[in-house]
Design a protein around this nucleic acid. Structure first.
Lengths: 160, 160
DNA sequence: CGTAAATAGATTCATTCGAATATAGTTGAG
DNA sequence: CTCAACTATATTCGAATGAATCTATTTACG
C-alpha cells in the first residue's frame, strides 16, 4: 500500500527508509566502539551540548530542547552524571526553580576524549563509503530536511 | 589526530551529525502522528517486515536480522503481538527449535492501514523539503552508507 | 549410534524509558 | 498583598530495553 498513490510518493518513502536504516546501522556501529568509556551516546550528547554552552552554563530546560530525550529522562541522567562528577548543577540565581548546568573539569576532559575518538570513528565509517564531495552533498540534503539551512539560524544556534 | 587535523574529517562529522539530526527529528514527528493506532513504530516495523514475507511466513531469526532490535526484545514483542491477535506463531516443521511467524488477517489489515497513513506522512514531510530528484539522490547516498549496494567494511569494529 | 559444538528462541535481571503527576518557584490581575 | 495560572524540575509508576544466561534442538564428527 505504501506506493499505491504514485511513484513520487514511493520514492519519498524509499528515501526515508534508506535514511532511517543508514542512521540506525551507523549508530549501532558507533555504539559498539570502545571510545565511549562506559558512557552511552545519549550521555555523550549531554556532554557535547554542554561543551557548546557559554561560560555560565546552560539551563536544563534549554538542554532538553536540544536533546530529543524526555525531560524526566534528562533529569535523572543529570543526577547520575552529577554523582559521577561530570556535571556541576547549581541553582539559577535568576530563577529559583531552575538549575544551571555546566561541565566540571572531568566532564570537559571526558567530552574531549570521547569526542576525538568518536569523530575518528565517524570519519572512518563515512569516508570509507562516500567521497568528500558526496559527504557535502549528503549534509546539504539532510540539513534541508530539518530546516537547518533556512534563511535564519544557520550559525548553530539551533533552538529547535 | 582527530577532529581538528583536516577539513575533510570535519566534513564527515558534520554530515553524520546532520544525518543523525534529520533522522531523529523526522522520526519524532512521524511518531506523533495519529496513524499508529496505539502501536509503536518498532511494532509497525515488525508488521511491515512480515508483510514482505512469503506465504509460509518468516523465521524469527531472519526477522531479528532485519530489525535492529535485540533478539530478546523481539521475542517479547512477538509475545505481545501474538496475544493481541496480530501475529500467528507456529513451530517450524523443519526445525524444532524455530518458530514461523506470519501476520493474521487482523495483523495484515493493521499493517496496511498504518502503512498507508505513515507513507502519507512521510511523503508530505520529505516532498515538502526536497524535490523528487533530490530524494533519489538522498536515497542513493544513504544506501551506500549501509552497503545496500556493495559490501565494504573498513571500520574493523562493525560486524554484519 | 553418541557426544560436543552450534543455533533458535525464551527467560532473568538490572537499568532506563516516557507519561502522568507532584512540588516548588514565578508571574500577573486586581 | 493574595490568589490563580504558569513554568522548571523532580518523582512515581508501569512498561520496555539489552546483556547475559538458560533450554531445547540440530548438526558435525568420531
Amino acid at each position: 500500500m505504501t506506493g499505491r498513490s504514485g511513484g513520487a510518493a514511493r520514492e519519498a518513502v524509499a528515501a526515508w527508509e534508506s535514511l532511517f536504516r543508514a542512521q540506525s546501522e551507523l549508530f549501532r556501529g558507533f555504539s559498539q566502539s570502545p571510545v565511549w568509556h562506559g558512557r552511552t551516546m545519549r550521555e555523550y550528547d549531554v556532554l557535547y551540548q554542554l561543551s557548546l554552552a557559554p561560560e555560565a552554563g546552560m539551563r536544563q530546560r534549554d538542554l532538553t530542547d536540544r536533546l530529543l530525550i524526555s525531560q524526566p529522562s534528562l533529569s535523572r541522567m543529570i543526577d547520575r552524571m552529577v554523582d559521577e562528577g561530570l556535571i556541576d548543577r547549581s541553582p539559577d540565581p535568576r530563577d529559583g526553580r531552575g538549575a544551571m548546568l555546566c561541565l566540571t573539569a572531568d566532564g570537559r576532559a571526558l567530552q574531549r576524549r570521547i569526542g576525538a575518538g568518536h569523530a575518528s570513528d565517524v570519519a572512518k565509517a563515512m569516508r570509507g563509503r562516500l567521497s568528500d564531495a558526496e559527504l557535502v552533498q549528503l549534509r546539504q540534503l539532510t540539513d534541508r530536511l530539518t530546516g537547518a539551512d533556512g534563511p535564519r539560524d544557520t550559525t548553530g544556534g539551533t533552538r529547535s
